[in-house]
């Protein structure tokens, strides 16, 4: 077929936007399933950051010490002895004195703050939350590679949203029930903005 004939045939072909929408929606949906889970779980975790620590399980304990508070510059051995008295068998990392009469000792997985006046030690142990710690780190955009991939995901989410509106014809489509549900879903955040912000 000559070139002009081919172009004529192409121009007469009707673009099937419903089929294209379905393919895009399906394939992008499959491809970004993992990303959706990462952002959904970390979004839930960070949305409640006021109520819990989304990254770490924090365990706190206060102990009364029998050893007197070490005076002067505290040596590494003295700090290690204090850890022993507290029953902490984790490896010592560092220590310093944030203010007079207070000593902060770092060990693997936590800190102990020893106070001279009260003779107590406040121990705080941190443990990474399984899954959430990693997903939250990703959500906070840790590297340039992630920035690019997350941008791609966001653009694809727009495509998934728009193509989702166009897939179904008939009573469940965008012109009827689908349209009402879409409108309701837009109104909820709009109302929250109007009422509370």
């Amino acid at each position: 077929m000559p070139l002009t004939g081919k172009l004529l045939t192409l121009s007469r072909m009707k673009f099937n936007w419903r089929r294209t929408s379905r393919s895009l929606h399906r394939d992008l949906g499959y491809f970004f399933f993992g990303m959706s889970v990462v952002y959904a779980l970390s979004g839930l975790a960070m949305n409640h950051a006021r109520d819990w620590n989304p990254d770490y399980i924090v365990r706190s304990e206060t102990l009364t010490l029998s050893t007197p508070f070490p005076e002067g510059r505290v040596s590494k051995d003295a700090a290690k002895e204090l850890l022993d008295e507290m029953g902490i068998d984790k490896a010592y990392r560092q220590h310093f004195s944030p203010k007079d009469g207070e000593l902060k000792i770092f060990f693997d997985g936590g800190t102990a703050v020893v106070e001279r006046d009260s003779g107590t030690a406040q121990i705080e142990a941190l443990e990474r939350r399984p899954v959430f710690h990693l997903f939250n780190r990703l959500h906070r955009n840790p590297t340039r590679a992630w920035t690019w991939f997350a941008d791609l995901f966001c653009l694809s989410l727009l495509i998934i949203s728009v193509t989702g509106l166009l897939i179904l014809p008939g009573k469940n489509g965008i012109t009827r029930k689908g349209g009402l549900l879409t409108l309701a879903g837009i109104l909820v955040p709009a109302l929250i903005v109007i009422i509370s912000l």
Binding site: Q94, T111, P142
Partner: peptide, 14 residues
């Protein structure tokens, strides 16, 4: 720039 973030459990590490 591309520097990786610090985490809370790094506290005490050199």
């Amino acid at each position: 720039d591309d520097c990786k973030s610090f985490t809370q459990d790094l506290a005490g590490q050199t």
